[in-house]
Simulated assay, not measured.
Amino acid sequence: MSDDQTAKTWVEAEWADSLDEELEMEIDDNLIAKDLAFISDKKHKSPLDRNFYFHELLRLQAELVKLQDWVQHTGEKVVVIFEGRDAAGKGGVIKRITQRLNPRVCRVVALPAPTEREKTQWYFQRYVPHLPAAGEIVLFDRSWYNRSGVERVMGFASEDQVDQFFNDVPEFERMLVRSGIRLIKYWFSITDEEQQLRFLMRIHDPLKQWKLSPMDLESRVRWEDYTKAKEATFERTNIPEAPWFIVEGNDKKQARLNCISHFLSMLPYHEIAHEPITLPDRVFNPDYERKVLPEHLYVPKKY
């Protein structure tokens, strides 16, 4: 076999591994317990062909790698906010964005509930340390919009605090943009019925129960309150410097591709030329003898 044929075989094997990696994540998304057959009957089938989805996702992920190189090379600072109802698919999109990127360049921020000390700080204070430096992308899996969403609906913030937030957040975001940060805001939208089905999946699937919190369950009860909170958020914070973009999330595959494609379109990135890389020859010492390590140091070969 020639060197070119060998290289082609290796590339094809790597491509297959990439598909397998995504398939593993996809299988996790579709695990259904036996007692959930009634849900699988209700779940709609994605209009996207499976092979098309996988190959298009990998193509977009290759573009994300180019974007990452551009961000590093130019010293850009990028913030992406992911908001929306519980189980709307934010986490799935974030996983696909970060899947093949350098975690030192692109990182996810998912803050827990504020501590007692943080509750006494300026509201935006705990988010500021997580903003990017030059050459970084930060993805906020929920953000300062907790105040106009869950905190407002669940009564963790007073109406005065929410009104103060609405007055402050446009100027806060304008300050970020003026500082050189590229700020992109996504809202993931799903129907009432789709959220109900996804919650039932999480309740009955032991691999997904960790995703459910008391706040998630309460959000089902307060669906209309969340709708009103969303409408007020759009009305007060949809500014030209940082507009909202709504991702329709009932079909997970479409939502992922649409969001990633749109994200790429929002930045004027281009491919960065790199110096050719040559793999150096291994230094070989004929007098060196590799030591035999004790058997107990090795992980058992169970598979």
Rank of each mutant, 00 (worst) to 15 (best):
P170Q: 12
K66F: 01
W144L: 01
V78M: 01
W187C: 00
E118N: 11
E235F: 00
K208A: 13
T74E: 07
W10C: 12
V65A: 15
G149D: 02
R107P: 15
A16Y: 06
D86M: 14
W70D: 00
P240T: 14
F52E: 12
G91W: 00
S46L: 13
D281N: 03
D287T: 13
D251W: 10
I81L: 10
R126P: 12
F165Y: 06
E248W: 02
Y303P: 07
G155I: 08
T191G: 06
D141P: 08
T120F: 04
D17P: 01
K228R: 11
I81K: 03
Y303N: 10
I190F: 11
A133S: 15
V247C: 02
V150N: 01
N285C: 05
T74G: 02
N238S: 05
V177R: 03
Q99P: 08
E194A: 05
T191P: 13
L212V: 15
N102D: 10
L36T: 00
K211V: 13
A13V: 15
D216W: 13
A134D: 14
F54S: 07
P112R: 11
P240M: 14
S46Q: 02
V292S: 00
S143Y: 11
N285F: 06
V292A: 04
Y288P: 02
S219T: 06
S261V: 05
A242M: 03
F234G: 08
Q209A: 13
L64E: 02
I181P: 01
H296R: 11
Q164T: 14
D35G: 07
V162M: 10
I94A: 00
Y288D: 14
M266V: 06
A16M: 15
C106E: 10
D69V: 06
E24Q: 11
M201Y: 10
I39G: 00
Y145C: 09
T120A: 09
E116G: 13
E231N: 14
D35H: 06
L257S: 00
V153T: 02
D35V: 04
Y269T: 08
T278P: 01
R174L: 13
K43A: 15
C106D: 02
P114C: 07
L279W: 12
S2N: 14
S46D: 12
V138Y: 06
D225C: 07
A273V: 11
D163N: 12
R178H: 15
F52M: 13
Q164A: 15
Q72N: 13
E159L: 08
T233L: 05
